[in-house]
Measured scan of single mutants.
Amino acid sequence: EVTIKANLIFANGSTQTAEFKGTFEKATSEAYAYADTSKKDNGEYTVDVADKGYTLNIKFAG
């Protein structure tokens, strides 16, 4: 089991951190699914992958 950390960075400057656990593939998939659901309210996003994929910096356009 691994933990994927997602740092969500919103257009207004606020941030949120979420953690997803499971296999690398499952946790990563859940992090992207979470970003997709947040996209409806926060606009399109880009992802900067860090820490060999264990940290995702997800920046929303607003």
Rank of each mutant, 00 (worst) to 15 (best):
residue 8 L to M: 09
residue 29 S to A: 15
residue 1 E to N: 11
residue 8 L to R: 01
residue 26 K to P: 01
residue 27 A to C: 06
residue 49 V to Y: 09
residue 18 A to E: 09
residue 36 D to M: 08
residue 37 T to G: 13
residue 61 A to Y: 13
residue 36 D to Y: 06
residue 46 T to W: 10
residue 37 T to H: 14
residue 43 G to L: 04
residue 43 G to V: 04
residue 18 A to D: 04
residue 12 N to E: 05
residue 31 A to E: 01
residue 8 L to C: 05
residue 47 V to C: 07
residue 38 S to Q: 15
residue 16 Q to M: 14
residue 40 K to P: 11
residue 61 A to R: 12
residue 52 K to F: 15
residue 56 L to Y: 04
residue 57 N to R: 05
residue 34 Y to R: 04
residue 43 G to Y: 04
residue 23 T to H: 06
residue 61 A to Q: 13
residue 21 K to L: 07
residue 6 A to M: 14
residue 21 K to A: 07
residue 16 Q to A: 12
residue 54 Y to G: 04
residue 11 A to C: 12
residue 15 T to A: 08
residue 27 A to L: 01
residue 18 A to P: 02
residue 42 N to V: 05
residue 39 K to A: 14
residue 7 N to W: 08
residue 16 Q to N: 08
residue 13 G to K: 06
residue 3 T to L: 09
residue 4 I to L: 06
residue 55 T to E: 05
residue 22 G to I: 02
residue 45 Y to H: 02
residue 37 T to S: 15
residue 40 K to N: 10
residue 26 K to I: 11
residue 50 A to Q: 14
residue 57 N to C: 08
residue 53 G to C: 04
residue 34 Y to Q: 04
residue 38 S to V: 15
residue 26 K to Q: 13
residue 47 V to K: 02
residue 18 A to H: 14
residue 41 D to M: 13
residue 31 A to P: 01
residue 27 A to R: 01
residue 17 T to A: 08
residue 6 A to G: 03
residue 44 E to Q: 10
residue 5 K to M: 10
residue 8 L to V: 06
residue 50 A to M: 13
residue 22 G to V: 02
residue 59 K to M: 13
residue 43 G to I: 04
residue 4 I to W: 01
residue 40 K to T: 10
residue 47 V to Y: 04
residue 61 A to M: 14
residue 52 K to Y: 14
residue 33 A to M: 10
residue 50 A to C: 13
residue 17 T to M: 11
residue 2 V to Y: 06
residue 25 E to G: 08
residue 16 Q to S: 11
residue 38 S to G: 10
residue 4 I to A: 00
residue 22 G to D: 04
residue 20 F to V: 01
residue 2 V to G: 03
residue 34 Y to H: 07
residue 30 E to T: 06
residue 59 K to G: 04
residue 15 T to G: 07
residue 22 G to S: 04
residue 39 K to N: 06
residue 25 E to N: 08
residue 42 N to Y: 15
residue 10 F to M: 07
residue 36 D to N: 12
residue 37 T to N: 15
residue 60 F to E: 01
residue 46 T to V: 11
residue 16 Q to L: 14
residue 33 A to L: 10
residue 52 K to E: 15
residue 62 G to R: 08
residue 60 F to H: 02
residue 48 D to W: 11
residue 20 F to P: 00
residue 5 K to D: 02
residue 12 N to P: 03
residue 55 T to R: 04
residue 12 N to L: 05
residue 10 F to N: 03
residue 20 F to M: 02
residue 7 N to L: 12
residue 35 A to N: 02
residue 29 S to I: 12
residue 14 S to P: 06
residue 31 A to N: 00
residue 33 A to W: 08
residue 51 D to N: 08
residue 2 V to N: 03
residue 15 T to D: 04
residue 2 V to A: 06
residue 39 K to L: 07
residue 11 A to F: 09
residue 19 E to Q: 10
residue 41 D to R: 10
residue 45 Y to C: 03
residue 45 Y to D: 01
residue 37 T to M: 15
residue 56 L to R: 00
residue 50 A to D: 10
residue 26 K to S: 14
residue 29 S to G: 10
residue 48 D to I: 13
residue 58 I to T: 00
residue 1 E to M: 13
residue 20 F to K: 00
residue 17 T to R: 09
residue 4 I to E: 01
residue 27 A to Q: 01
residue 5 K to I: 15
residue 18 A to L: 15
residue 28 T to F: 08
residue 54 Y to T: 06
residue 19 E to I: 14
residue 35 A to I: 09
residue 1 E to Q: 13
residue 54 Y to A: 05
residue 27 A to M: 02
residue 13 G to W: 05
residue 8 L to P: 00
residue 15 T to W: 10
residue 7 N to Y: 14
residue 54 Y to E: 04
residue 43 G to R: 03
residue 38 S to T: 11
residue 31 A to Y: 01
residue 61 A to F: 14
residue 25 E to L: 10
residue 22 G to C: 03
residue 21 K to H: 13
residue 24 F to P: 05
residue 28 T to E: 05
residue 12 N to A: 05
residue 11 A to Q: 10
residue 35 A to T: 02
residue 1 E to P: 10
residue 54 Y to I: 05
residue 46 T to I: 11
residue 39 K to Q: 08
residue 51 D to A: 04
residue 51 D to V: 02
residue 7 N to R: 10
residue 39 K to V: 14
residue 46 T to A: 07
residue 38 S to A: 15
residue 40 K to W: 11
residue 39 K to C: 10
residue 6 A to F: 03
residue 11 A to K: 10
residue 27 A to W: 03
residue 23 T to D: 07
residue 17 T to Y: 13
residue 1 E to R: 10
residue 28 T to L: 15
residue 9 I to Y: 14
residue 45 Y to R: 00
residue 58 I to P: 00
residue 55 T to I: 09
residue 60 F to A: 00
residue 60 F to W: 05
residue 13 G to A: 05
residue 27 A to H: 00
residue 26 K to H: 12
residue 52 K to M: 14
residue 43 G to C: 06
residue 50 A to W: 09
residue 57 N to G: 03
residue 15 T to K: 11
residue 9 I to W: 11
residue 9 I to Q: 08
residue 29 S to Q: 15
residue 50 A to L: 14
residue 10 F to E: 01
residue 17 T to L: 09
residue 36 D to E: 14
residue 26 K to W: 12
residue 35 A to V: 07
residue 12 N to K: 04
residue 32 Y to W: 07
residue 15 T to Q: 11
residue 42 N to L: 08
residue 52 K to G: 15
residue 11 A to H: 09
residue 8 L to D: 00
residue 52 K to N: 15
residue 2 V to R: 05
residue 57 N to E: 05
residue 18 A to C: 15
residue 9 I to P: 01
residue 36 D to L: 07
residue 27 A to Y: 01
residue 49 V to K: 08
residue 9 I to T: 12
residue 32 Y to D: 01
residue 19 E to V: 13
residue 1 E to I: 15
residue 55 T to L: 07
residue 53 G to K: 02
residue 30 E to P: 01
residue 3 T to A: 06
residue 62 G to C: 10
residue 41 D to C: 15
residue 25 E to P: 07
residue 49 V to Q: 06
residue 53 G to T: 02
residue 9 I to L: 11
residue 35 A to C: 09
residue 22 G to H: 03
residue 52 K to P: 03
residue 29 S to E: 14
residue 6 A to Q: 02
residue 59 K to V: 13
residue 55 T to Y: 04
residue 3 T to H: 06
residue 58 I to H: 01
residue 59 K to P: 01
residue 62 G to I: 08
residue 20 F to T: 00
residue 57 N to W: 11
residue 29 S to M: 14
residue 51 D to M: 04
residue 31 A to K: 01
residue 4 I to P: 00
residue 15 T to N: 07
residue 41 D to I: 13
residue 54 Y to W: 07
residue 55 T to G: 02
residue 59 K to I: 15
residue 26 K to E: 13
residue 34 Y to I: 04
residue 17 T to G: 06
residue 41 D to H: 13
residue 7 N to T: 12
residue 47 V to M: 05
residue 18 A to K: 15
residue 49 V to E: 07
residue 48 D to N: 11
residue 55 T to N: 03
residue 60 F to G: 00
residue 42 N to D: 05
residue 33 A to R: 12
residue 26 K to A: 12
residue 12 N to Q: 05
residue 14 S to Y: 13
residue 22 G to L: 03
residue 33 A to Q: 10
residue 11 A to R: 10
residue 62 G to K: 08
residue 34 Y to D: 01
residue 22 G to W: 03
residue 11 A to I: 09
residue 49 V to H: 07
residue 15 T to S: 11
residue 49 V to I: 13
residue 39 K to D: 03
residue 1 E to T: 12
residue 6 A to S: 04
residue 30 E to A: 14
